[in-house]
Simulated assay, not measured.
Amino acid sequence: MSSTRFAPDRGLTSRMVVTMFLLGLLYVAFMGILIAVGVQALVVLVFAGGLLLVQYFLSDRIALFAMHGREVSPQEAPELHGMVDRLCAMADMPKPRVAIADSDVPNAFATGRNQQNSVLCVTTGILRRLEPQELEGVLAHELSHVAHRDVAVMTIASFLGIVAGLMTRFALYTGLGRSRDNNGGVPIGLIVMLVSIVVYAISFLLTRALSRYRELAADRAGALLTQRPSALASALTKVTGDMARIPNRDLREAAPFNAFYFAPALAKGTSIANLFSTHPPLERRLEQLARISAQLGRG
């Protein structure tokens, strides 16, 4: 990772190492079981690897296309570009491409495999709702994701889940579930499907746990860069509160992209266990920002 002035986070590094180690261990065990039961997993691995490469190298373009974002020039959005210029200078990092998505859902996201190939996008909804200092806090949070290569890390971490999901479909659609071993025992496909489901569930929980911590790390890095944790806390509170006034249909359309967003888009009445969430609870994020504010001796 290129050096920036974003505050280092040893907790983030250690969690990333532990999560990647556990995912790697799980991957080895999964492949060992597949080989042991005689499954030729090469086709699935090649297909999953292709998906991973496409997601890795084209994540910025895919995200912009999916979320209807449009790159804007400094002449089209001078204030937004000015904020990004200032924050990039403070963080000593290259400036990402800047985009705006025409959506009333108040949110922002940054994506790209590295600092040289990244895009930062905000919605028209968040531009209308936030004060300049609040928006600056959100942008600093998103730039932290770029600086720490969070998209690349999460893409790689998701590889095992993709393989497990594809193996489950492979067992269901190829008739593998009807084939039995030489002793007429349990169908090989059933073994593959059950193992794949377990592997997918474990990898899903591990990547979600890593995603939640990376959001906390981005909050911390962004607050320390701007030295205004209260502005980021205010933005979080506004965005989360205003989300409740967005039509359910719009929230459902935005929900598949929660992993990218500054704050998750959840439809009203939705109750999702924190264990399965891409983001930590609002209360935990605000508590961390309050501690940082106290440490800095200001808001």
Rank of each mutant, 00 (worst) to 15 (best):
V239I: 12
G222Y: 05
R70M: 09
M193Q: 05
L53G: 14
R245P: 00
C121Y: 10
A36H: 13
P74F: 10
A101C: 08
P96C: 08
I162D: 11
V44H: 04
V17G: 14
A66R: 12
G38C: 03
L224G: 06
A235W: 07
A231H: 04
R180I: 07
R15T: 07
M31S: 12
T13V: 15
A217W: 01
Y261K: 09
V153D: 02
F109Q: 03
A221Y: 09
L23M: 01
L224P: 02
D219W: 13
L139V: 05
L58C: 05
Q133C: 06
M90T: 03
L225W: 09
S73D: 15
R228I: 00
V18K: 04
Q40E: 13
T111S: 07
G82H: 05
L12T: 02
L34A: 14
N248Q: 10
A209D: 12
S179F: 15
Y213W: 03
L42G: 13
I33V: 15
A263N: 06
G184M: 03
V153Q: 03
M154F: 13
A171Q: 07
L251Y: 07
K268R: 13
G161H: 02
R252A: 12
V153H: 09
P264L: 01
K238N: 10
A110Q: 08
F170D: 10
A217E: 06
V54E: 13
L127N: 06
R249C: 08
Q115S: 14
S179N: 10
T123I: 07
V186E: 15
V163Y: 02
P94N: 02
P187Y: 07
N248K: 14
R129N: 13
L22D: 11
T237N: 04
V192A: 14
D60H: 14
S158R: 07
A273G: 14
E287A: 15
A147C: 09
E131L: 15
R214L: 00
P8L: 05
V151M: 14
L194G: 14
L224V: 08
A108L: 10
L26I: 10
M243D: 01
I62E: 06
T278Q: 08
V192L: 09
V18M: 08
H279F: 03
I33R: 02
A244F: 12
V39C: 05
S234N: 11
A259P: 01
V195M: 10
S179K: 13
R214I: 01
S234K: 02
L236D: 01
G185H: 13
E131D: 15
L12N: 09
Y261E: 06
R180F: 04
